[in-house]
Nucleic acid binder design. Structure first.
Lengths: 347, 347
DNA sequence: TTGAAAGCGCTAACAT
DNA sequence: ATGTTAGCGCTTTCAA
């Protein structure tokens, strides 16, 4: 933090009072054109910039919004940030990002820290560990604008944006069924997350539609969402050891999809023998072998919408009581794992 | 921003002065144990949290650091953020992230905005467009601690961290040469970036070592770093139309590598006929077809080191005059594009 | 049209 | 051991 030019500096230099300078800079109606001219010229000359911290303290408004998410180095979330940032920038807000790493404790710390930094509002995607929401509802009750995205909770009444996880899962599972698979396993995320529940039910619904009996042994949760290396490999091992091995797997998240594919590769499993479908927002998905059907979320749009909602809450004159839950369609892409494209041009 | 409990509230409630409460909460030596007890109990009871904005104004210190990078949704940069955040969190600093999208104008805005938000220091990776550095050197002269990472500039004297781009490029190019390639092209990033120049010279040095004549036509720069879809495809087309088509390509960045591989796929080029090596920090690299040799940067460590350096600058009592430039080794991984791994286990 | 004064929430020098 | 005061940089009544 550096000492820089202040209003007072301009005032004394020009023989005016600080309030006059302030008004001149904000183009106040009471100030003469002449003074405005003088002040603005001088301000530009000495490169004056308004101290935003002082402004925040005075106005109780910081023009910054806080974001709490599990981690940024994940295709889905980094694309979300891009969306958030695009709107925030356009509306003149700063973005302060913090990561929970799916830890309850860190989520609580981050949320409180951001609140004390006087963010004008909060964008939250819940940590996997979190089951107690009082750190959020306390702030919400105090009137802090909050919008949930992706991993939402029902307990707090405010705007929410999420994907149509049910639909995405349903379609992905259906693709596997239509490819003739009947023993379809489900590699799921941490069980308490909203997205996990929704994706599980989409999977179940697809099975039901095609009269495939749901087998609980085929559902394996990764409590750390695949952040622990061995998590997914353990699941794959378990699948391989079943008497009734699955013939397909529906994978519930971006990170898990990559982990699962790597496990398939490491275990030297023939990709032609197993159907794979999963959520993924990777930009390199077309390059991956084994190829797999995938569900893509509108991550960028989700970030944009969440931010628009939040800024609407922040800037609304009278308290908002009607809340909206936006559910964004997913896109499902079919890939036949057994098709091999023969290259034609010699470079 | 919400109105919350202040020092004064506690003071009046307890019949004390604000300063006493302040000292009690900060465990000042002058305050009696009894008062401290009383104050702390009450503060906890009503859930008092110190207003960090007021603190910032008072102390001229915000405990936050600003980050300016081209974009977060890029494996290398999001991993860097993870490193930055890990250290910042540990030391009690907030991270404010902004993206330049490689635009000079946005970089200037972001840098100034962060300075006015009174960040205690700045972590910068230069935008591709930037050639005038006065927005940074002005702040630097005023005493704002700044550390450059990855895309650094020589013009400003401060701490810097970057990868050993020369070494990485040299090794990658050497791998292609050792695989028998002689017409090795180079798909490069925006030309003014430090990393572009370093990688180009590593490439040239490898050619020279093996007595391969450098052909300027084989070097194609992507001024937008592959953010424009067609950029890379145009280059690939140009390569294909050359009388003396390259038999290998060394790709200079994470994003460009993905784009190039997709172009290879889209143009139906037989990957067995072309050697590919490139920088990449993707976590799905092992899954990609065509497989390619790659150079990985220590992104997480780079973020950590840059942040440690910055906090050292921020917290140093007397002005730092000795600056350090850390160059992190890259790791090079060999992949033979023509080896096909036969799967062995049937799932 | 301009200036003086108060205050946002906090801390620290200076009383007492 | 505790209180008073001033001030961080800005805005905003209120007064002139």
């Amino acid at each position: 933090m550096i000492k820089s030019v202040t209003l007072k500096d301009i005032a004394t230099a020009l023989g005016l009072s600080a309030s006059t300078v302030s008004r001149a800079l904000r183009d106040g109606y009471e100030i003469s054109e002449e003074t405005k001219q003088k002040v603005n010229d001088y301000a530009k000359k000495i490169n004056y910039n308004c101290n935003l911290v002082a402004l925040s303290l005075k106005n109780r408004k910081s023009y910054s919004i806080g974001v709490v998410m599990c981690e940024v180095s994940n295709n889905f979330f980094s694309q979300t940030i891009n969306g958030i940032e695009s709107i925030a920038y356009e509306k003149g807000y700063n973005v302060i990002i913090s990561q929970s790493h799916d830890s309850y404790e860190r989520e609580v710390m981050n949320v409180n820290h951001l609140a004390n930094r006087s963010v004008d509002g909060l964008l939250i995607s819940m940590a996997a560990e979190t089951t107690d929401f009082s750190h959020i509802s306390d702030l919400h009750k105090k009137g802090l604008p909050i919008v949930f995205f992706d991993r939402i909770i029902d307990e707090i009444e405010t705007h929410k944006v999420t994907s149509n996880n049910f639909q995405g899962s349903f379609q992905a599972t259906e693709l596997l069924i239509k490819a003739g698979k009947t023993r379809i396993a489900h590699l799921a995320n941490a069980p308490q997350l909203s997205i996990t529940k929704e994706r599980l039910s989409g999977y179940k619904a697809a099975l039901e539609k095609y009269n495939i009996k749901f087998n609980p042994d085929y559902v394996k949760h990764c409590h750390h969402g695949g952040r622990l290396q061995h998590e997914v490999e353990d699941v794959v091992k378990a699948f391989l050891q079943m008497k009734n091995k699955p013939d397909a797997v529906f994978v519930a998240s971006d990170r898990l999809s990559i982990c699962f594919l790597i496990a398939v590769k490491n275990f030297n499993i023939d990709p032609r023998e197993i159907g794979i479908a999963g959520f993924s927002n990777s930009d390199a998905i077309e390059l991956m072998q084994p190829s797999f059907s995938y569900v893509r979320q509108s991550a960028f749009e989700m970030g944009q919408i969440a931010t628009q909602m939040l800024i609407q809450l922040i800037e609304s004159k009278n308290p908002v009581t009607e809340f909206e839950k936006r559910v964004l369609d997913t896109e499902t892409f079919l890939n036949e794992p057994n098709i091999i494209h023969e290259p034609q041009i010699i470079f």
